[in-house]
Structures are given as C-alpha cells and as structure tokens.
Nucleic acid binder design. Structure first.
Lengths: 152, 152
DNA sequence: GCGATTTTGTTTTACATCGAACAGTTCTGC
DNA sequence: GCAGAACTGTTCGATGTAAAACAAAATCGC
C-alpha cells in the first residue's frame, strides 16, 4: 500500500524535523514568497525591502557595507542596485572622501515606497505570528538574533 | 562626515530590524551558506540534505508530495532529482498504483551519505545554537513551527 | 460508460544569483 | 616617497531557480 495514504498535511522531514536548520529554511522560504506574491503589483521593491530598509536607516553608506549587512556578495548587489536605480527608488552618489565608493541613498520616491511597504510588512508580520504570545514572539526574535551573531 | 564611521559590526536594518521576517531571512541565508561551504567536498548532497531527509523518512512517495514538503515547485524539483540520481543518491521507480507517478527512494549509498551528513548537521546545529539555553532552543523550534503552520 | 477536469512529471524559457577575474583607488610598511 | 597589499565597484561566465505550456494518466460528474 506504499504511496497511497494521502493525508492532507505536509510530509515531515524525519530526523531533520526537530532541527532549527530545517525549520528555519522552510519558514523563511514560505515567509519570503508569501510576502512577495501578495505584492506582485509593487515591482521589485518587496523582494528587496530588507535591503531598502538598511539603506533608509544608513543613508550614504558604501555599497559594500550595505551588501554585507544583508549577506549579499558585492557582485550580486550591483545588478540589484541597477534595477532599483532604474525604478527610481535609490541613487548612487560618488563619495567625496573616497573616490572608489558610491554612497547609496533613497530617492524621495523611494522613501515613500519603502514607508508604505513597511506598513504592509508589519501587517504580514502580524499574520505570520498570529496565535503566538508576546513572550513567544520576543523569544523568537532573541533566538534569531543569537543565530545571526553565532553565524557572523 | 558621512560614510566615515566604520564600526566593525553589521549595519542594522532600522525599522525592519525588530521584525521576524528580516531576521528570519538573514539567519537562514547565513546558516544555509555556512553549512554548504563547510562541506564543499561532499558534492550536492549538503544543499539538498533537508530534501533527502524527507525522502528517507517517506520512501516511495511521489515527487510532487516531496517537492511540496520542502516548498519547491515541481518544475525545479525535476532538475534536482536528475542530479541526485546521477550522483547515485536517489532512484525513481514508477508506481504500480498510478502510472503518472514516480516513487522516490534513497539508494543504499544515498542512505549512508545522508546518515553521515545528518551527523554533520547535528554538529552544525550545536554551533549555531551555542550559548543558548535549552528552553530558548525549544522556544525557537516552537516559534518556527508555528510560523510554518501559519504560512501553509 | 464517457467527456471534462485535475493531477503528475517534464520541457522550455526567462530570470536571479554567485564566484572569479579586473581596473581604479587607497592604505601599509618601510 | 614608493612598491606591494588591500579594498571598491564592476563585468563576465556558469549555475540555480521559477513560471508557463505540454502530454499522459487518473478522477469526477453525470
């Protein structure tokens, strides 16, 4: 009778099921895709919202610093900035201190787009965490931060 | 003095910094890449270890069920199975009940490779979570599972 | 039974991402 | 000062991933 019992639930991962690495990846894929697909009419900004939020918090910082913040290789970052720049959301300005670096800035339009998307993100965050206690959410944030620290 | 204060820490994400969505993504990227790069001499298996663990726990299940378990589109899954099959880790066998489906099985070699990599994964898990209490780890697992449930 | 719908695995095509190599600039040690 | 090392942004080639369209097989509604 193999291959027959079609229960409706997702297949578990056996030994890997109780590991942070597995659940972390699965949760992230679902969260990221869900958020992106809910905002298909907003262009490329939703996919790179984290990145844009870093830029907003640190205007004028060099590309490499921002790429490092979101764990992106510098080479990948170039294409992404080209697109966001073509969409009128960000701007590269040559640094006055170091002729190698480009400072990255949000345009006024980028500022409003990011502000609007951050509200969407907060709504999405509420959906993702529905049914969790405030303590659990705080614990989740703490654990994720500790993972990031340990892996950096 | 913009673009000058080069502190050594990672740039924060401003408003997004305290959101699960942002930290979840960053942690997952770091965890996944770190694990993969530590095992460059093990071919493609480390990248697809989660997937292989699902197959091991549910031998003979159709491709679509397994793809769904790890949130992969069926079309992406085909190429991956082709590679894992060429590496001798898995095997497709036509189902006797439904002539559309291929049941997926680990080969004997696949079985030993996955068993070995799962030990590596447990070691990596310990490194990721070093400095965390058992309660925090359990809470992290619970939160991640709840996220997966809410997003499914 | 039988046509319409759904499901499964696949191909095709477009796009996203990464590593390696490169030129221009700055920094370091002396 | 100056040669070598390190850093920044970029290009290029290779690989990974995803959406859409397709054929074969099973299921549903009647």
């Amino acid at each position: 009778m193999a291959g027959r019992d079609d229960t409706q639930t997702r297949l578990d991962a056996g030994e890997a099921e109780d590991t942070i690495g597995y659940k972390l990846r699965l949760a992230q894929i679902l969260a990221f895709r869900g958020f992106e697909q809910r905002l298909t009419d907003h262009g490329r900004a939703p996919r790179y919202l984290g990145l844009l939020s870093v830029i907003r918090a640190h205007p004028g910082k060099p590309q490499s610093r921002i790429a490092e913040a979101v764990a992106l290789p510098r080479s990948s970052f170039v294409t992404i900035l080209d697109q966001l720049s073509a969409d009128g959301l960000i701007e590269r300005r040559p640094s006055t201190f170091d002729r190698r670096v480009n400072g990255i800035w949000l345009t006024p339009e980028g500022e409003t787009v990011v502000a609007g998307l951050m509200q969407e993100a907060q709504r999405y965050e509420a959906e993702m965490t529905r049914g969790m206690s405030a303590e659990d959410i705080a614990c989740g944030l703490r654990v994720l931060q500790k993972l990031i620290d340990n892996l950096s």
